[in-house]
């Protein structure tokens, strides 16, 4: 759905995006992560035909950036960093204006559909200035969806929202995915990216890594198993370290923290060895590295 080759953007002497190569598959939620100033918004702006690349090429929904910009604009929806609503206009008027600009056939019907879908129908006549931050964000999402775009660019969709509202927005993003939309998600909320995204790109001007969250974990860290014992001792640590498949082991409180290549295969043997050595095992779990750890390791 999105193919990017060597995409570069320079503002004078400042290199904002440096030779980006990536591909976003149809119907996936693609996380685009990076620190402030990493070129995320610039990339979104290039891919939604708002600004032109300095070099490189990109195709969005089958249309070439820089050559078929109007077609791209027809086929993408964008939620900008700030909702950017007309504060003096009603929710309904805000949406109908954009529906008309997007050449939506049934303006009134489509506006009603999205106002209802996002729970704003009862407030349709109220001016946007009276809306809470969450409601404004929902209205901005509705605006991005009005013309049923194939690709949706979401720049920080849950920024500043309370947990309940953020969850609603996340659920809506998942619903959109279920309806076959391709979603390009820019967020600083790494937990959100971990939960929502099929694949993740980490950028800092240039592309640092691109894969599924699980694959990124596997690439950067050993898999770690935590064995909770009633009483951990150096003897048990020794038993574990003697196993040929164990890569690392350490005792933390009454827990053995064991690095393994393949826990699914190695765990039964490891547990047997510990039980034979007289260890009282309370439970066993895998220590899951957070996306935050992966992200920080990549960008530093």
């Amino acid at each position: 759905m999105i193919v990017v080759k060597g995409l570069t953007k320079r503002f004078g002497d400042v290199l904002a995006v440096d030779g980006l190569d990536m591909e976003v598959k149809p119907g996936e939620i693609f996380g685009f992560l990076g620190p402030n100033g990493a070129g995320k918004t610039t990339t979104i702006r290039m891919l939604s035909a708002l600004i032109s690349p300095t070099s490189g090429e990109a195709k969005v929904a089958g249309y070439e950036v820089g050559r078929e910009d109007n077609e791209i604009r027809r086929n993408v929806g964008i939620l900008t960093e700030s909702p950017g609503l007309y504060a003096r206009l009603s929710a309904e008027r805000n949406l109908s204006f954009f529906a008309e600009l997007y050449d939506v056939e049934d303006v009134a019907g489509q506006v009603e559909r999205y106002l209802r879908l996002l729970g704003l129908w009862d407030r349709r006549g109220d001016v946007a200035a009276t809306f809470s931050k969450g409601m404004r964000q929902k209205l901005a999402i509705a605006r991005a969806m009005l013309h049923e775009p194939k690709v949706l660019f979401l720049d920080e969709p849950t920024a500043g929202l309370d947990p309940e509202m953020a969850r609603l927005v996340r659920e809506f993003i998942n619903e959109l995915k279920d309806r076959g939309r391709t979603i390009f998600l820019c967020t600083h909320n790494l937990d959100e990216a971990d939960r929502l995204c099929d694949r993740i790109a980490v950028v800092n001007t240039r592309l640092l890594a691109l894969d599924t969250p699980e694959a990124l974990r596997a690439k950067l860290y050993d898999r770690v198993v935590v064995i909770h014992l009633s009483a951990a001792s150096p003897a048990y640590e020794k038993v574990v370290s003697e196993q040929s498949f164990v890569r690392s082991v350490e005792i933390k409180d009454n827990k053995l923290v064991v690095g393994l290549d393949d826990p699914e295969r190695n765990n039964p043997e490891l547990i047997r060895a510990l039980v034979d050595a007289g260890a009282d095992i309370q439970f066993v779990g895998e220590l899951r590295r957070s996306l935050e750890e992966i992200y920080l390791r990549l960008v530093k």
Binding site: A49, N70, S82, G84, Y86, L101, Y102, D103
Partner: peptide, 14 residues
């Protein structure tokens, strides 16, 4: 100032 220009420019308006 109201940040409404970017969504407008993202539409297929010349």
């Amino acid at each position: 100032t109201t940040r409404t220009l970017e969504p407008v420019l993202a539409t297929p308006v010349t």
